[in-house]
Amino acid sequence: MNLQYVIRRTGVFILVVVLAVTVNFMIPRLIPGDPIEEKLSQLTATSSGNLVTGIEEMAAAYRTQFGLDRPLVEQYVNYWRDILRLDFGYSLSNYPETVSNSISAALPWTVFLVGTSTLISFVIGSLLGGLLAWPRIPRVLRGLIPVLMVISAVPYFLLGIILIYLFVIVNRIFPAGGAYTFGSTLHWDLESLGDILHHAFLPGMSIVVAGIGAWALNMRGMMISVLGEDFITLAKAKGLREKRIFLWYGLRNGLLPQLTTLALTLGYVVSGSILVEVIFSYPGIGYKLYQAIQTKDFFVVQGIVLVLIVSIGFALYVLDLVYPLIDPRIQYDVR
């Protein structure tokens, strides 16, 4: 790894962010419909005609406040200025809450729930997949393969609904939704932690279980081709113990492509698992995004998409920098 490469790769990362911000700015403005008139007509409809007069003036006033009456270029420049200050504006549907607050309240829940479940799913799935490719495992384990195939075909939200039915409705073991018991205040203690884990278990489970199948089947395929390599034969001929061959000659090599997928998946974590969060009314980013899209809340959607793009870009950036350390064959030569 050399400094020149790091600098170049950092430049690419910044370019990705700039392009993403630009696209992120343009796209919502191309969608037909005006969010302010939408909001106001909702208000008029629900308040039985009291606000009918002066609606044009109100719309104009709001447009001025949100800066939507300025020329597009000026809006773009202002947009950049705000982003650099981490100011994504106000939420249109929950005015006067700011988008930054909105996102930073939801993000930790999502990173905790989806991030942890993804990692657990990856570790269990990869290990299982590696074992399934190993020739000397009990036959019973091999019976897992069709089970995994079925599981990987079941969408995680469907799994979520099944879990709710089994563990919330039939057996009242777990709460139906939320991130913690409604009305309680959270502290940094074991009681709160237990409560959080109790609430996170079912949504987490649906992500873990739904993901395991894919991780395991991918890993199994990778591992089978690795185990056919000559260096596995020689490792065996060297008299190495099975555990050593499995972990350091087999798994270590089979895992390399999995790590690329993991980095991408972790990048997507910040978008949450929309449907899981909606089903379990989990106060994460996915739920927020779902609400924002429903209410045409431009700024929240933009803010979330921006965070998503930056984090995927960042995940790939880190992966690219770290990859030579994981796979010595990858080298970056700058000519």
């Binding site: 000559d230 034969t233 490792a235 001929a237 008299g239 190495l240 090599n253 010595p328």
Partner: peptide, 24 residues
């Protein structure tokens, strides 16, 4: 038998190109 391998009988493999673990 594992203990005998390479200790008393060793082997020079056929596929020299791929007989070493690429990540070690």
């Amino acid at each position: 038998m594992r203990a005998v391998r390479f200790d008393r009988v060793s082997m020079v493999p056929q596929g020299a190109m791929n007989s070493l673990n690429p990540v070690m």
